[in-house]
């Protein structure tokens, strides 16, 4: 897998609709917070923070963006506020502890395999390590009994992906039509779109 991204809707930006009826004040407020009030690190230690950022860079690489969508700060914010998602599998510790254990374990894996910090590994080595974690092939004492794949998929990847695809730039990238209030959509059929949606997929034009 290369790190090239072929954008299907280049030039489409949902923020261009900011002044239109596709946006209401509630959504404008939420977006404004997301875009301008990126939180400072408050929960993770400096080491954890370095590992986390390196992990995020591999889970959602953004070499094409001069200004990458911030992900780690939002994870940190949620943990600082002690937010949970409603489910704690009994094999898992509490959310905060799960993150601390998980990041430390990834770091320990990197040290064990390559005697290097995870953040200093090459992208290929980082990916290989993460893939092993995802597939549950990274058992070890540093996981403290927490199932690595459960942490990877249900906690870490899930949260990273949710944060990324909540950002307007990511929504623009995939040609999402929203936000949509008060104005929704009129044309619902296949290959039909309203003037305020992304024009059709470049790869098909």
């Amino acid at each position: 897998m290369t790190d090239r991204f072929d954008p299907p809707y280049p030039g489409y930006d949902i923020l261009a609709k900011w002044d239109s009826v596709s946006f209401d004040d509630t959504t404008r407020r939420v977006y404004a917070d997301r875009l301008k009030d990126v939180p400072e690190r408050a929960f993770f230690s400096e080491t954890e923070w370095r590992t986390l950022n390196a992990v995020c860079d591999r889970l959602i690489p953004q070499p094409d963006r001069p200004d990458p969508i911030p992900i780690a700060p939002w994870i940190d914010r949620a943990l600082a506020e002690n937010r949970t998602n409603g489910t704690r599998y009994t094999t898992m510790p509490q959310m905060r502890e799960a993150w601390r254990t998980g990041l430390a374990a990834i770091e320990a894996e990197a040290q064990e395999r390559h005697e290097t910090a995870f953040s200093d590994l090459t992208a290929e080595r980082q990916d290989a390590l993460l893939r092993d974690v995802s597939n549950g092939d990274a058992e070890g004492p540093h996981w403290n009994g927490m199932p690595p794949h459960r942490f990877f998929r249900s906690v870490m990847l899930n949260e990273v992906v949710r944060i990324y695809y909540a950002h307007p730039a990511a929504l623009s990238e995939i040609g999402f039509g929203g936000p949509a209030a008060p104005r929704g959509y009129v044309r619902l059929g296949a290959d039909r779109m309203d003037p305020w949606e992304a024009p059709s997929d470049r790869r098909r034009r």
């Binding site: 923020l15 261009a16 900011w18 002044d19 004040d25 404008r28 977006y31 404004a32 209030a181 008060p182």
Partner: peptide, 27 residues
Amino acid sequence: MRDVRPDHLRQVRKPLPEWRRPRGHGG
């Protein structure tokens, strides 16, 4: 509402005249 869009987008449209600006709540 503060405009937080990137600069190139902010220049897209001039501010609306007073009578056209949405009043009160967006929805």
